[in-house]
């Protein structure tokens, strides 16, 4: 296919038509990113449990809805299941001394089997919006955007409140300076357990939303969730800093995490519109997140590094 033929095949109308659906899905990823923000930024832990707990949330939601539960109740149970998954990772880390990143990987691996069990050993399970009353669905995109936005808003408000309380402050202190926290009488093990549980609860909730939105749960739906969440967190921080600058408070930071999720998914919509092979999406995401994670380091390097001295010819004495 020639270049001109390629561009001729791209229809702007089709892109515009796909954007609302992208926003709805982006909101769900943004909600998940709120969970990842808690571990990555507040607890200073890269928690890989989420790839598993996202699927757990989806699986529990779909199975319960199929069993006749109301969708909202299914989401509550899904959130609890996520809390439990986070708790397992936390216990592996705090009580058994396994490094947090490995503890997350172990739980994630175990969850793959658990998720299959939840879905009755099926790799995926469909839940039709025609037969069941769902919280949101890609068949009704405007409603899905509204629902997603409301849930995100409520969640941002609750998190803003919680991390302003004495307990939430103790969690933030634990991530920021564990030695100080212990010296101030904070049980940092318990704070890590709380943070990891809360984080994975939110991730599972978003998994439950995603399963309803797309109409099915799949055992692989959480693959790469951590990277997508990191992408949302980082995009949100960059855009938030650019738009609000120093006026950005914690509420703004949390809101922009959700915005980051939306922006991330809109980029994906555009990339798909450009007819990139969907199999390359993960590669694309990994490269983008890798670049963003590297930016702060490279910025520092530009100011002071050995390579820079070499370029200058061995510094002042040469």
């Amino acid at each position: 296919m020639s270049v001109s033929a390629y561009f001729a095949s791209l229809s702007l109308l089709k892109l515009v038509k796909n954007l609302p659906g992208g926003i709805a899905q982006g909101l769900i990823w943004g909600i998940m990113a709120l969970g990842i923000y808690i571990t990555f930024r507040l607890l200073d832990v890269a928690d890989l449990t989420v790839d598993g707990s996202f699927t757990t949330g989806g699986a529990v939601t779909v199975v319960l809805i199929l069993a006749g539960w109301p969708a909202w109740a299914a989401l509550v149970v899904a959130t609890l299941a996520g809390l439990l998954a986070g708790l397992v990772t936390g216990l592996l880390h705090t009580k058994l001394g396994i490094p947090a990143i490995l503890a997350g990987i172990l739980t994630q691996l175990a969850l793959f089997s658990v998720n299959l069990h939840i879905m009755g050993m099926a790799a995926n399970k469909a839940v039709s919006v025609d037969k069941y009353s769902l919280v949101l669905s890609l068949r009704y995109v405007p409603a899905a955007i509204l629902t997603g936005a409301i849930i995100a808003l409520v969640l941002v408000s609750v998190l803003y409140w919680y991390f302003g309380t004495e307990q939430g402050s103790a969690i933030r202190a634990t991530g920021n300076n564990p030695a100080m926290s212990r010296a101030l009488g904070i049980n940092i093990d318990n704070m890590k357990l709380l943070g990891l549980s809360l984080s994975n609860g939110i991730v599972a909730l978003s998994g439950g939303l995603m399963a309803q939105f797309q109409g099915f749960a799949d055992v692989n739906m959480g693959r790469g969730a951590i990277v997508i969440g990191l992408a949302a967190v980082i995009i949100g921080e960059v855009v938030g800093a650019a738009l609000l600058g120093k006026r950005r408070n914690f509420y703004g930071t949390l809101s922009f995490v959700v915005v980051g999720g939306v922006l991330y998914y809109l980029v994906i919509v555009v990339v798909l519109w450009l007819k990139l092979n969907t199999n390359d999406l993960k590669l694309f995401t990994a490269v983008v997140v890798g670049l963003f994670l590297a930016v702060p380091y490279l910025r520092g390097q530009r100011k002071s590094s050995f390579a820079r001295l070499k370029k200058k010819g061995g510094g002042g004495n040469a």
Binding site: T165, E166, G185
Partner: peptide, 15 residues
């Protein structure tokens, strides 16, 4: 505020 609550129960009151 964290230091003021050294040894106290840290609940859901504002920090």
């Amino acid at each position: 505020a964290l230091a003021l609550r050294r040894g106290q129960k840290r609940g859901l009151k504002w920090g």
